[in-house]
Amino acid sequence: MTLDAVKEGERARIARVNGDEAVKRHLGALGFVAGTVVRVVGTSYGNMILAVHESRIAVNDATAKDIEVEAV
């Protein structure tokens, strides 16, 4: 499934990041790599705030749809 389906408070493990090259690279640098576990801190009309390691990263729904995850 993709990240946008994960509910608030839940965690998920990143399986694969798809989408635009530039975005993939940026997400990669921020820690969105296969194996990392992220937690959904909050959502707002489809946009999500994610806890990645100790940081908080906000992504929009389209970007979240490009991130494949597995349940944890």
Binding site: G19, H26, N47, S55, I57, A58, V59, A62, T63
Partner: peptide
């Protein structure tokens, strides 16, 4: 529009 990725500092 394109994607949106932004770090929210503590």
């Amino acid at each position: 529009a394109s994607s949106f990725v932004l770090e929210l500092p503590a």
